[in-house]
Design a protein around this nucleic acid. Structure first.
Length: 379
DNA sequence: GAGTCGTGGGT
DNA sequence: TACCCAAGACT
């Protein structure tokens, strides 16, 4: 709760206070404020079109913002449209099942987001609400809503003047201020959030936040920025000093490691064998084909591995998360359950059930292999 | 603060 | 191929 209050104070300053206390090596000047207006003008002519920009429904904006956490817009669009057909309102979502929500989220990653959406919808429904609250602190109290998402929803759906500091905004303002501090640490973030909040025009905060993101996604690119096209080039300290390629600065990038292993598809009379994952950690609560990739995951398999000679390889599937790059060989065992293999802590499901079951990445790709190779015939 | 949590496209 | 990284939140 304390954390929530601190976050709340961090972004709430800009909803109530003036353009003071900008802890930049410079201040919010008239030129900068004017540039902010220029950016709004640029946005009017250059903004991207997305399905979530056709609405002012706070529920829809909330869903889109959560889907877009660490996710590129091009991937979220289809999921958003499908989600709105399945769960068009907050009440619909509150009545949904977790399996239904996870199935709708399947393939989008960070599945805690979907679980949190459901939790939040149920919490709000219990309070008798039919839409999102408009107060910043109430938004922040929802599971899965942090500083960025609260500010985005508050500004876009409710017109509150709070800066939504996402990765795009960090890049844009780290360059504008030529910030040498890392943008993934509290000190750097605080400076950038102050700067952005100070520069933000008070009349269209939602448009301003989205303008910054669009600028970061189409002009102020990470590797190949188009500075000549930038409406902020005249006030960009980094462009002036030719430090664009060095901005923004990140504190640490951890290296990743490759791991190889095997994934087993046990098939017996049209049925396949799945196990359930633990309720915490990676792919929590999902069912999946059993796999092993020591030393990353040395879990007890639900069966003694079948004798060699009865299997065929269907190909490889890849998946990466945190600092691991996982490659699994998909091995198919066809035989008779009980005789050729005897799973213990697993369940058998009909092949066609795989379609409706939410599966984690490797199992999802293995399922596609099964369908593609006609091992299981549905569709 | 540092780790964890997914995925697929871009270079 | 082997990286990088994107509309972050949580523990």
């Amino acid at each position: 709760m304390l954390v929530r209050i601190v976050l709340y104070n961090q972004i709430f300053r800009f909803a109530v206070k003036d353009r003071k206390d900008i802890s930049m090596k410079g201040k919010i000047t008239k030129e900068l404020l004017s540039a902010g207006e220029d950016l709004l003008g640029w946005y009017e002519g250059s903004k991207r079109t997305f399905p979530w920009r056709n609405t002012d429904d706070p529920y829809r904006i909330w869903i889109s913002e959560v889907m877009l956490q660490q996710t590129q817009t091009s991937r979220a669009a289809d999921y958003y449209l499908r989600w709105m057909e399945l769960f068009p309102t907050l009440e619909d979502l509150a009545r949904a099942t977790e399996e239904g929500v996870l199935k709708a989220w399947e393939g989008l990653g960070y599945y805690g987001r979907a679980k949190n959406l459901l939790r939040a919808a149920r919490l709000l429904a219990e309070e008798g609400r039919d839409t999102l609250p408009s107060e910043l602190h109430a938004l922040l109290s929802l599971p899965g809503v942090g500083t960025y998402t609260a500010a985005a929803v508050a500004s876009i759906a409710f017109g509150l003047a709070v800066p939504a500091l996402d990765a795009n905004a960090k890049r844009v303002f780290a360059r504008l201020t030529d910030l040498e501090l890392p943008v993934d640490r509290a000190e750097g973030e605080e400076i950038l959030r102050n700067f952005m909040g100070g520069m933000m025009p008070r009349q269209k905060p939602g448009d301003f936040n989205q303008a910054v993101m669009d600028l970061g996604a189409t002009v102020c690119l990470s590797v190949t920025p188009s500075c000549p096209l930038c409406p902020l080039r005249k006030v960009c300290l980094s462009a002036e000093r030719k430090t664009i390629p060095q901005r923004p600065v990140f504190s640490q990038r951890k290296k990743s490691a490759s791991i190889e292993g095997q994934l087993w598809v046990l098939k017996s009379e049209g049925m396949v064998c799945l196990r359930r994952r633990p309720s915490k950690g990676l792919w929590a609560d999902f069912e999946e084909f059993p796999w092993s990739a020591p030393p990353l995951e040395e879990r007890v398999l639900p069966f003694p591995p079948p004798a060699p000679g009865f299997f065929s390889s269907l190909g490889r599937v890849r998946s990466s998360f945190t600092r691991w790059r996982l490659t699994l060989e998909v091995l198919l065992f066809e035989g008779k359950a009980g005789a050729d293999f005897a799973p213990s802590q697993a369940r058998w499901v009909e092949g066609r059930e795989l379609e409706t079951l939410p599966l984690p990445g490797p199992s999802r790709k293995a399922r596609e292999l099964l369908f593609a190779k006609g091992v299981i015939s549905v569709r």
